[in-house]
């Protein structure tokens, strides 16, 4: 019985990682147009928004919370970016303002959760609607497309003829930071404790509310960074950018073995989950599966990803009992 939770976590990570490799190999072999460098760079570029938000979302879910307003924060950042650009402000000024806005959005979520003790699921469903509403007020139905060329090139281009988008490199840096933060620092360690038992964490002197506030703020920051990237990557700032992205992020993170009840999972698993979802979406697009059907697949994956680890755990329990 002793190592069920541990072995389950390891096993599920491995399952998702293996699944990702299988899907990639299968697609290389059997899906027309998948294996060329250009398509792969599209795959990575289109998956980056999910991946960027998945970093803080993983930490948040490990600590037992969730933020569903991330896509709206991203949309709001894009909208503000477009509106300020229309006003003629320099992009070098706009970007820090948008990031600051993301910090504020995250801080609002965090304060509502930690100061008022509200459940994050409810709070962020509320701000999901509110932030998107503000985005529409700010930009209306405009689409801003004329951002400076070097920014657009950076967000959508790739390194030479390789499959690596430029933007993938800074992502790798952020990924490394997040892995270290979650798995190798006292901060990360405290998040696992908070997620597994908030009360016990408090009795161990861990500053639970402060850690959560930091996480929500970081999530807001990363969501706005994603919003900026989104607008530049697709060369379009609209109020409804990234709508529904939170569903993909949560699905991917849970698929990667992060326990929805908190306290369990690895960032490696979460990122494997993200790129598994990204690869499936890419393959479906190549096969002309409609966007609506893709959402259905995401939804089914979300259910399976919550179910999968539980079934694995049940199997482990049964096996442990019958091995006696």
């Amino acid at each position: 019985m002793a190592d069920i939770s541990l072995s389950r976590a390891v096993r599920w990570d491995t399952v998702v990682g293996a699944l990702l490799i299988v899907v990639l190999l299968f697609s290389f072999g059997f899906v027309d147009g998948f294996g060329n460098a250009l398509n792969l760079s599209f795959l990575i570029g289109n998956t980056l928004p999910i991946a960027l938000i998945a970093l803080p979302m993983t930490l948040l879910v490990v600590s037992g919370e969730i933020d569903l307003s991330v896509a709206s924060t991203a949309g709001l950042s894009g909208a503000v970016m477009g509106a300020l650009w229309n006003q003629g402000m320099a992009i070098e000024t706009i970007i820090p303002i948008c990031l600051l806005l993301g910090v504020v959005c995250g801080l609002v979520n965090g304060l509502l959760v930690t100061k008022l003790g509200l459940p994050s699921l409810a709070v962020t469903i509320g701000t999901l609607a509110a932030y998107r509403g503000i985005a529409q007020i700010v930009l209306g139905s405009d689409a801003v497309t004329d951002f400076p060329a070097q920014y657009l090139d950076f967000a959508s281009g790739r390194i030479g003829d390789t499959f690596i988008p430029y933007a993938f490199l800074p992502f790798l840096v952020l990924l490394a930071i997040a892995v270290v933060a979650l798995h190798a620092t006292p901060f990360g360690r405290s998040l696992f404790a908070i997620g597994a038992s908030e009360e016990a964490a408090r009795f161990a002197g861990i500053r639970v509310k402060r850690q959560k506030l930091i996480l929500f703020t970081l999530t807001g920051l990363m969501a706005s960074l994603t919003g900026i990237f989104w607008a530049l990557h697709y060369a379009s700032a609209r109020y409804d950018n990234a709508t529904g992205l939170e569903l993909s992020v949560v699905a991917a993170v849970l698929l990667g073995g992060i326990d929805f009840d908190g306290g369990k999972g690895t960032l490696g698993g979460a990122i494997a989950g993200v790129f598994l979802l990204g690869a499936l979406q890419n393959v479906m697009s190549l096969q002309d599966v409609s966007a609506q059907s893709q959402i259905v697949v995401t939804g089914v994956l979300l259910v399976l990803s919550v179910l999968g680890p539980r079934v694995a755990r049940q199997i482990a329990v049964v096996r442990a009992q019958s091995s006696g």
Partner: peptide, 9 residues
């Protein structure tokens, strides 16, 4: 509930 995180080592 308070002294230990039961799922932790």
């Amino acid at each position: 509930a308070q002294g230990l995180v039961m799922d932790m080592s």
